[in-house]
């Protein structure tokens, strides 16, 4: 009787999860496998894949733009993650306090991360205009002469970071929730011990929410490897239609890896090479994800011990 129940549970469980299982096979497993096969072939959308062995990988590794785009993407991942986390945490510390109008303030901080990225990017492109843009005109009030944000390769990534920080709302909410879960008694006993605000932050707040921050860091990292829309739009705005197919912004400084995969697949029509590049990306992301979750686990374990 008991065994029967277990079997029935298994069947039911399977049935209920069936849509997702089918989806998983069709939209994750199959494409992953197929793209691995494609990475050893050469084809465009109307030709059949022809086996070329390791040629695509050889071509990718010898392509300077692959390296350029990879380094751009890694830069964004490593620089934007700490900046965004820091900004999110700081905003959360402000928004979590009790004050009049905090509901409005929270909504305002969160709003940018809700609106469609394409619209946000377009507004920022306009804000970044060196002469007519809001940003440089605002800076000039303080006597600062702003750069040509999207034309000068030294500032393009800074511009992207700025947009990213503006959209940090979701992380902020998570941090707020985490902060709210830190037991008040910790702070109270620290107060009695005469700890300063900064000490409280480093010895209580940070360790208590470390595991949440670590998880946010992983997500932020993975997002950095998905970077596409913003740069796609910025580049097409820079060029206008007259100059034809898009490249990678000033000095290819915002040619992100996913964008270059897209170029190879849907502009240069080298789908085999694009598949190879996609798999390289997949391997990098998987390795980083495993590594970071190990680190995160360690961090939260350490925090638990203390």
């Amino acid at each position: 009787m008991k065994l029967k129940q277990r079997n029935r549970d298994t069947i039911n469980g399977l049935l209920f999860a069936l849509p997702w299982i089918i989806g998983f096979l069709c939209f994750s497993v199959y494409p992953l496998g197929a793209s691995l096969y494609y990475s050893f072939t050469e084809f465009n959308p109307i030709t059949k894949p022809v086996w070329v062995g390791l040629e695509n990988f050889r071509m990718s590794f010898s392509d300077p733009l692959v390296w350029k785009s990879l380094s751009n993407t890694l830069f964004m991942a490593f620089v934007s993650t700490p900046i965004n986390l820091f900004a999110a945490l700081m905003l959360a510390m402000v928004a979590v306090r009790k004050f009049k109008g905090r509901g409005i303030a929270r909504a305002i901080f969160f709003l940018p991360s809700v609106i469609p990225m394409i619209a946000a990017t377009m507004v920022w492109i306009w804000m970044f205009d060196p002469t007519y843009g809001f940003l440089n005109n605002f800076l000039s009030i303080f006597g600062i002469r702003g750069p040509s944000w999207l034309m000068d390769p030294r500032y393009t990534k800074g511009a992207l970071l700025l947009i990213g920080t503006w959209c940090v709302g979701a992380s902020m909410l998570v941090c707020m929730a985490a902060l709210a879960e830190v037991p008040v008694s910790y702070y109270e006993s620290a107060q009695i011990d005469g700890a300063s605000g900064i000490q409280k932050f480093f010895y209580i707040t940070l360790p208590s929410i470390a595991h949440v921050l670590a998880y946010q860091a992983i997500l932020s990292f993975i997002n950095a490897f998905q970077y596409f829309q913003q740069v796609y739009v910025i580049i097409s705005a820079n060029q206008g239609s007259a100059t034809g197919t898009a490249s990678g912004g000033p000095s290819n400084s915002i040619l992100m890896y996913p964008l270059y995969i897209f170029h190879n697949a849907f502009v240069y029509l080298k789908m085999g090479k694009a598949s190879a590049m996609a798999w390289i990306l997949f391997i990098i992301v998987s390795l980083l994800a495993v590594l970071m979750s190990k680190l995160a686990r360690k961090a939260s374990e350490n925090a638990g011990v203390e």
């Binding site: 998983f24 994750s28 793209s35 494609y38 959308p45 995969i261 789908m271 990306l281 994800a289």
Partner: peptide, 16 residues
């Protein structure tokens, strides 16, 4: 795990 798969990786076979 599926949350970690970048869209660009599955994009080409699905498109095809």
């Amino acid at each position: 795990a599926t949350m970690m798969i970048p869209y660009t990786v599955t994009m080409i076979p699905l498109y095809r």
